[in-house]
Lab assay of single mutants.
Amino acid sequence: NKFNKELQWATWEILNLPNLNEEQVKAFIDSLKDDPSQSANLLAEAKKLNDAQA
């Protein structure tokens, strides 16, 4: 289903952001699991944090 694909993509993207630490990655992944419908928003937040920590 649509959410599953978005969830998988967002998870992969977050796991490959170079500037997030392990705790941050885990928090984002946990949030994705809690509410897959928010995957696009969570991914945007993760990318923002990644850029801020570059």
Rank of each mutant, 00 (worst) to 15 (best):
E45N: 10
N19Y: 12
A46W: 02
S39I: 15
S31F: 11
A52D: 09
D35P: 01
K48F: 11
N50K: 01
L17K: 01
N1L: 03
N19T: 03
V25S: 08
Q8W: 12
Q38M: 09
A46K: 00
N1H: 05
N41W: 15
L17V: 00
N21Q: 07
A44V: 11
L20I: 04
Q24P: 00
A44G: 07
Q53K: 05
N19V: 01
A44Q: 08
E45K: 14
L32S: 01
Q38W: 04
L17N: 01
W9T: 05
L43G: 01
E23H: 11
N50Q: 02
A10I: 11
L7R: 02
L15K: 09
Q53G: 05
W12K: 04
D51T: 09
D35E: 07
N4Q: 13
L20K: 00
V25R: 14
L43V: 14
A46Q: 00
A54S: 09
L32M: 13
A44H: 12
L15V: 05
I14L: 12
L42H: 03
A10S: 04
Q53P: 03
P36F: 08
A44L: 12
E22P: 13
Q8I: 12
L7S: 03
N1R: 03
W9M: 12
P18V: 09
L15G: 05
E45V: 13
L32G: 01
K33D: 05
N4Y: 13
N41F: 15
N16H: 13
L32N: 00
W9N: 05
D30V: 13
E23Q: 14
N41Y: 15
V25A: 10
A54Q: 08
L17H: 02
N1S: 03
L17G: 00
N21R: 12
N19F: 12
L49R: 04
A10Y: 13
A27N: 09
L20S: 00
T11R: 06
F28K: 01
L20T: 00
D35S: 07
E45M: 15
L7V: 11
S39P: 03
L7A: 10
L20E: 00
N41K: 14
I14N: 01
A40E: 07
P36Y: 04
F28I: 04
N21P: 02
L49F: 04
N1Y: 01
A27K: 09
Q24E: 03
D35M: 07
K47W: 10
E6D: 07
V25F: 03
I29D: 00
K26E: 06
N1I: 05
L32H: 01
T11W: 05
V25Q: 13
E13A: 12
L43P: 00
W9F: 11
E23V: 13
L17P: 00
L42F: 09
F28R: 00
L20R: 00
Q38D: 08
I29E: 02
E22L: 10
L32V: 05
F3S: 12
E45A: 14
L42M: 06
D35R: 08
L7E: 06
W12T: 05
P36N: 03
Q53M: 08
E6F: 15
S31M: 13
W9D: 04
A10G: 03
L17T: 00
K2D: 15
D51E: 13
L49K: 04
Q38G: 07
A27F: 14
T11N: 04
S37K: 07
K5Q: 14
A10W: 07
A27I: 08
A54W: 10
F3R: 10
S31K: 13
D30E: 11
D51N: 11
A40T: 08
N21S: 13
K47L: 09
L15D: 03
Q53V: 06
P18S: 09
T11V: 09
A40S: 11
N16R: 13
I14G: 01
E23Y: 13
T11A: 05
D35W: 07
S39M: 15
K47N: 06
N1K: 05
N21E: 07
D35T: 07
D34T: 11
L42S: 02
A10R: 03
I14H: 01
N16L: 06
I14A: 01
K47M: 10
E13W: 15
Q38H: 08
S39D: 02
L49D: 02
E22Q: 11
E13K: 14
N19L: 04
K26F: 09
A46E: 00
P36A: 05
D34M: 14
Q8R: 08
E6L: 15
I14V: 05
D30W: 15
S39E: 03
Q38R: 12
E6R: 04
E6H: 10
F28N: 00
L42P: 01
E23N: 10
N19E: 03
L17I: 01
L32D: 00
A54Y: 08
N19K: 03
L49N: 02
L20P: 00
A10V: 12
Q53T: 05
N41T: 14
K48D: 05
F3M: 11
L20M: 02
Q24R: 02
I29Y: 03
N19I: 01
A27Q: 08
K5M: 03
E22V: 11
N50D: 05
N50E: 01
W9H: 10
N50S: 10
I29A: 03
D51A: 13
L42E: 01
L20Q: 00
F28S: 01
E45T: 11
D51F: 13
S37I: 04
D34P: 02
Q8Y: 10
D35F: 07
N41L: 12
N50L: 01
L15N: 08
T11D: 01
K5V: 07
L49V: 12
N1E: 12
A54R: 05
E22I: 11
E23I: 10
A40K: 14
K33G: 07
W9V: 09
A52I: 11
A40N: 08
D30R: 15
W12L: 05
Q8F: 08
N19A: 09
D30N: 14
N41P: 06
L49Q: 06
W12I: 03
S37P: 03
D35Y: 08
A40M: 15
I29K: 03
L15R: 08
N21I: 07
F3L: 13
L43R: 04
K2Q: 15
A40V: 09
S39N: 06
S37Y: 06
L32I: 06
L42N: 02
E22S: 12
N21A: 09
L17D: 00
L49I: 08
D34A: 13
N1W: 00
L43I: 11
N41E: 09
L15Y: 11
V25N: 02
N4D: 15
A40G: 10
S39L: 14
N16F: 04
A54D: 13
N50F: 01
E45W: 12
N16D: 04
S31Q: 13
L15W: 10
L43E: 01
K2S: 15
E22N: 09
A54I: 09
I29W: 03
F3Q: 15
P18M: 09
A44S: 11
N4A: 07
Q38V: 05
N16V: 05
D34N: 12
I14D: 01
P36V: 06
L43S: 03
E23D: 11
N16E: 04
S39G: 06
E6S: 04
F28M: 04
K5T: 09
L7I: 12
E45G: 05
K48M: 12
A46P: 00
N4F: 12
S39Q: 05
Q24T: 03
N4I: 12
W12Y: 08
K48Y: 07
